[in-house]
């Protein structure tokens, strides 16, 4: 059983965590074609190397980001999501946006 270092709770057995997918910031959905949007939703890079992933510490429901090497299965580092997502995200009202 691997150990993962939770930024809030410290090192814990990996069984205390769930995986939440790769970190891929959402593009502006109004600026993408249908195909581009479908690629964003359904396609994953599946990188051989270091990937950034969402992980959640289940007992505290704490989401954070882990950088993991998919070749060596080494967890390189973990940090709070706020280090990546620093500012509030807003969506412009529909009337102000171009039709896709």
């Amino acid at each position: 059983m691997k150990v993962m270092n939770c930024p809030l709770n410290g090192p814990r057995n990996i069984s205390e965590f769930v995986w939440g997918g790769e970190v891929k910031p959402m593009p502006d959905e109004t600026k993408l074609s249908d195909r581009e949007w479908a690629e964003y939703v359904f396609l994953e890079n599946n990188t051989a190397g270091v990937v950034r992933e969402w992980w959640c510490h289940v007992p505290t429901s704490f989401w954070f980001i882990a950088e993991r090497n998919t070749v060596t299965d080494e967890i390189v580092k973990t940090y709070p999501a706020s280090e990546v997502f620093k500012a509030r995200v807003d969506f412009a009202p529909k009337s102000e946006r171009a039709k896709p």
Binding site: W54, S61, W63, F85, K86
Partner: peptide, 8 residues
């Protein structure tokens, strides 16, 4: 929680 970690 995951979404709001992004939207803040």
């Amino acid at each position: 929680l995951q979404w709001n970690a992004q939207w803040r």
